[in-house]
């Protein structure tokens, strides 16, 4: 058993959190337990479902299989950081409107992958969206409404940025 504890600071959704953790701890566990942000889910043991997806400096990672200590000094974004105060992010609004949320367990991870995709590619084809979300399994929806929601959001965001 390792007793090696690292006192580090993790910046999550713009807020710095000092935490003391063992080196072997995964980021999702630290986000959920030490930091208390349980929006990030855990659906598997090893990078296979995407429920734990968060952004690290804007890019998606599977936080279940990422060492928390390796995230120090980087900007971590979780689903709790998507909305602007009480104002839902367009992705959140659209995924609700299209019916892309059922049990909701995949939803936080889906939203994070979608956010990263739209940041990288504001004008994605449906195929681009499919590849962008291909690391996120959903058992409930059959994906059609999630696809539609991301597509609608891309259109909406392009509309606002053009004007």
């Amino acid at each position: 058993m390792s007793t090696d504890i690292n006192a580090i600071e993790l910046t999550v959704n713009g807020v710095p959190y000092p935490v003391a953790i063992d080196t072997s701890r995964n980021l999702s566990g630290v986000l959920r337990n030490e930091i208390g942000l349980t929006g990030t889910k855990e659906g598997c043991d090893d990078c296979e479902c995407g429920a734990c997806m968060v952004l690290l400096d804007g890019q998606p990672i599977n936080s279940c299989s990422y060492l928390a200590v390796q995230a120090q000094g980087r900007e971590i974004t979780t689903v709790e950081g998507l909305a602007d105060g009480d104002e839902l992010h367009p992705l959140q609004r659209n995924i609700l409107a299209t019916g892309g949320v059922q049990c909701g367990f995949c939803t936080p991870g889906m939203l994070m992958s979608a956010q990263a995709l739209l940041d990288r590619n504001p004008d994605p084809s449906l195929e681009d969206i499919k590849i962008g979300l291909s690391g996120n399994l959903c058992r409930c929806t059959g994906y059609a409404r999630i696809l539609a929601a991301v597509d609608a959001t891309a259109v909406e965001l392009r509309g606002t940025s053009d004007s």
Binding site: C47, Q59, N62, I131, S134, G135, N136
Partner: peptide
């Protein structure tokens, strides 16, 4: 390789 997240890191 894997998913966008796997490829990203």
């Amino acid at each position: 390789v894997g998913s966008p997240a796997t490829r990203n890191v």
